[in-house]
Design a protein around this nucleic acid. Structure first.
Length: 249
DNA sequence: GTCCAGGGAATCA
DNA sequence: TGATTCCATGGA
């Protein structure tokens, strides 16, 4: 549990952590999670020089940082995201934590950690269905099982290049192109040379660059090719600025 | 009642 | 490969 507070030019971090006694360990966790070692001003400068769309979206979302989230948590969360909406995704994840994670107490309130693969593997397909996962229950079950029984090694992904890691992830039930790209971008695999395409990204790319009357007719290949050429190896970060801009503005 | 949500898998051409 | 259809669920 981490509490983050902005106080003028300072940002205060306070939290519960089993390593909190060791201030340096706590510090490095925060630096890692919020990706504080990375020079975003340099990245923004480079992306903003591409065109005015990027420039405007970066101004709008100047504080965006892409987190280094736990790999297993990211995998399960994005499997649940398929054909789903954000409020319900949040509710499902909360129920998973409450039922299979560990209870922690912070300032008199109780919170629940996201379960480890072993902890989540205790859930049957029926258990997951009861938590409201819908048709995603089997996908979460199968993927968790593969990871727990050693059939799939999460750690090897860190050694692979982006394309190789993607091909491995795509072997897991519930992971297709979009979910795969999100895992590569938002987990601590931290690959920026991916471009997750959902309905919003399709919309913003069509509005800004493609101009097709029927946005549903714009295929992913066309968008991906455009992103590769235009944004290059930082396309994943570009996606976040454009997504946030289109979504919020 | 109908539509839609940060898609994927199965099926068929 | 590429296009369709189905898949639970809940809020709008």
């Amino acid at each position: 549990m981490l509490n983050v507070e902005k106080n003028g030019d300072e940002i205060l971090f306070d939290g519960f952590d089993k390593e909190a006694k060791d201030i340096n360990a706590f510090k490095s966790k925060i630096i890692k999670y919020f990706d504080l070692d990375r020079d975003y001003s340099k990245i923004k400068e480079s992306l903003a020089s591409i065109d005015n769309n990027l420039k405007n979206s970066i101004e709008y979302g100047e504080g965006i940082r892409i987190l280094n989230q736990d790999l297993f948590e990211t995998i399960i969360s994005f499997i649940i995201s398929a054909n789903n909406n954000i409020p319900r995704i949040k509710g499902i994840i909360e129920r998973i934590c409450k039922n299979y994670g560990n209870e922690i107490e912070y300032k008199g309130k109780k919170y629940y950690t996201f379960p480890t693969p072993a902890e989540l593997s205790k859930a049957s397909v029926y258990d997951l269905r009861k938590l409201g996962l819908g048709f995603r229950d089997v996908r979460v079950y199968n993927t968790t099982k593969k990871i727990v029984n050693g059939e799939f090694d999460l750690n090897k992904l860190y050694e692979l290049n982006t394309e190789e890691a993607a091909n491995e992830l795509l072997k897991l039930d519930g992971i297709g192109p979009k979910v795969c790209d999100c895992i590569l971008l938002f987990s601590d695999l931290k690959r920026f040379d991916v471009f997750p395409i959902d309905v919003w990204v399709r919309r913003v790319m069509n509005d800004l660059y493609i101009h097709n009357e029927d946005e549903k007719k714009v295929n992913k290949k066309e968008i991906k090719k455009l992103a590769d050429e235009k944004f290059g190896a930082l396309e994943g970060i570009a996606q976040q600025y454009l997504f946030y801009w289109k979504r919020e503005a």
